[in-house]
Design a protein around this nucleic acid. Sequence first.
DNA 1: CTCCTGAGAGTACGGCTGTTCACTGACTAT
DNA 2: ATAGTCAGTGAACAGCCGTACTCTCAGGAG
Lengths: 208, 208
Amino acid sequence: MSHTVGVREAQKQKTRKALMEAALVLLEGQSLSSLGLREVTRAVGVAPTAFYRHFRDTADLGVALVDEALGSLHAVIRATLTATGDSAGRIDSTVGLIARHVHAHPAHIRFITRERHGGVERVRTAIGEQLRLFADEVAAWLATQPDCAAWSEDDRRMLAHVYVDHMVMTASAFLEAESYGAERVEAAASLARRQLRLVSLGRRHWLD
Amino acid sequence: MSHTVGVREAQKQKTRKALMEAALVLLEGQSLSSLGLREVTRAVGVAPTAFYRHFRDTADLGVALVDEALGSLHAVIRATLTATGDSAGRIDSTVGLIARHVHAHPAHIRFITRERHGGVERVRTAIGEQLRLFADEVAAWLATQPDCAAWSEDDRRMLAHVYVDHMVMTASAFLEAESYGAERVEAAASLARRQLRLVSLGRRHWLD
DNA sequence: CTCCTGAGAGTACGGCTGTTCACTGACTAT
DNA sequence: ATAGTCAGTGAACAGCCGTACTCTCAGGAG
């Protein structure tokens, strides 16, 4: 580049990132509503007042974490939807993809499932909004599928809702299973696959 | 009675109940992990030290709330399972029963959904244990149903799991809908009924 | 009637919290 | 070269927190 993005701005983003990562670690053992501003800055090794240069309060930090955790997931979802193959194959690859994502970003998943119904309203609604967008994408994809083309718009949204909720619950189940060992992870995967098969069967006979 | 249960013990239980109810109110705007012991006693109008006569800490209070909120639900679930009628009728009455329960005990439902994945481990496991018991009851009932008799035990547990998770999610959806008005509640009910119909269809064709 | 138990009150402690203010000093635009 | 911007500092504030003491005094047991 002819002009770098600025040493100053780069350092600021680095500190901001450090605050978010420290918060994510601290949130493994508590909820956002009990996370203290000083607690976070102490973990980073920065003065408490420096926090205000990046976030208004811890709820603001929470919303930023939601964007980080779920914002990048849209691409993953689109990739899943456009995958080809038979029903069983698609189910396998979907569940595998969730398992890999949870394994790669456990703290993010924990944060989302914990705060989805958590005590901080702004964060709750931010998560709800993102999940609604996921459901929109899935519903739009369902409209392109031959077996759902004749469904009502409402029914397609219902099914999309089921898929998104199942994805979140499966991710949470994987997270819990990972702390107990590989065979528990495989059991969670088996459960998720059979649940998707159940939905798949219901979907096939919806218009009977 | 020839001898009353004791004026002393009665007063103690009254204070204990007051602490739990005050906590439930305070938890509408925060998570258990940020609930302070002093905060609860102040709401009741009792000295902070009196708290220790009833609970070791706020996590202990949380476990007591789990028992209160879910312990009485076993009877309700059994009543739902033994209800008779056709598939659509059973779905209607089940969803209606959930709606009425949420309307009658909103704070309990909020507490359970919030702390199910919340920041306090003891409470999380207490809720998970109760939900597992619910799934056990449903699985045992499924074994008595003609259409599931030939299923594997694992598959029956999978389906029971789906029913219990759906019940919790529907309760949470009703709770949120109630703050927006009656038509949103009806929309949530419609969604829940169609989701149950989808599961019902999948169940009917599981052994195809 | 007397003794004892125990729920709750009152006080005090050290430690933590969010927020304010004035400040430094490295970067950046001119 | 110079002036300005602004991320991060450090001290100070009032207020909350959990917990450890001692104390009181109704209620129950003998």
